[in-house]
Simulated scan of single mutants.
Amino acid sequence: MPVIKPISDLRNNFNQISEICHEGGEPVFITKNGKGDLVVMSMALYEKQQALLELYQKLAEAEAQSAAGVPRIPHKDLINKLRAKING
């Protein structure tokens, strides 16, 4: 269930909101005059979401290349090529 706090809590109880973000691993939604205004989250959660976004973008690019008929390298050939690079 999402944590929703008024903006006054951000000002008056920042440490509590920080603790909720870090311990729960979820964002805290901040309201202003009864309406959604901000989302506060830990750096760890932000970085995780950014990494997922980057992964989804790369997967979408790979899907587009696959649909366009871009030549592929078989898995076995790729592994052999990587091993050759590693082993010199």
Rank of each mutant, 00 (worst) to 15 (best):
M1A: 13
P2N: 04
P2I: 02
P2R: 11
V3G: 09
I4T: 13
I4G: 01
I4Y: 10
K5Y: 09
K5P: 01
K5H: 08
K5G: 01
P6V: 02
I7V: 14
I7Y: 06
D9I: 00
D9A: 07
D9V: 00
L10H: 02
L10I: 11
L10M: 13
R11E: 14
N12P: 01
N12A: 10
N13F: 06
F14E: 09
F14I: 05
N15F: 12
Q16P: 01
Q16G: 13
I17F: 10
S18V: 05
E19F: 12
E19R: 12
E19I: 07
I20R: 09
C21F: 05
C21Y: 04
C21G: 06
H22R: 13
E23R: 10
E23C: 09
G24D: 11
G24V: 04
G25K: 02
G25R: 00
G25W: 00
G25I: 00
E26H: 12
E26S: 08
P27Q: 00
F29M: 05
I30C: 05
I30Y: 10
I30G: 00
K32S: 14
N33W: 07
N33C: 05
N33K: 15
N33Y: 13
G34S: 06
G34F: 00
K35R: 12
K35S: 03
K35P: 02
G36P: 03
G36A: 09
G36K: 02
L38C: 00
L38Q: 03
V39M: 06
V40T: 03
V40R: 03
M41S: 04
M41D: 03
M43L: 06
M43D: 07
M43A: 11
M43C: 03
A44L: 09
L45T: 03
Y46R: 10
Y46D: 00
Y46W: 14
Y46E: 08
E47Q: 13
K48V: 05
K48Y: 09
Q49V: 07
Q50D: 04
A51C: 04
A51T: 02
L52P: 00
L52V: 04
L53M: 14
L53V: 12
L55F: 11
Y56P: 00
Y56N: 13
Q57H: 13
K58F: 01
K58H: 13
L59F: 07
L59H: 13
L59I: 06
A60T: 12
A60Y: 07
E61Y: 08
E61C: 04
E61K: 15
E63G: 00
E63S: 10
A64V: 05
Q65F: 10
S66Y: 13
S66H: 11
A67V: 02
A67K: 14
A67Y: 05
A68C: 04
G69R: 03
G69A: 04
G69F: 03
G69V: 04
G69D: 07
V70P: 01
V70D: 01
P71H: 05
P71C: 06
P71D: 09
R72C: 06
I73F: 09
P74W: 11
H75I: 08
K76E: 14
D77W: 11
L78R: 14
L78H: 14
L78Q: 11
L78N: 11
I79M: 09
I79Y: 15
I79L: 15
N80I: 01
N80Y: 08
N80Q: 11
K81L: 10
K81S: 10
L82W: 09
R83T: 01
R83I: 07
A84Y: 10
A84D: 15
A84L: 13
K85C: 02
K85W: 05
N87W: 09
N87S: 12
G88V: 02
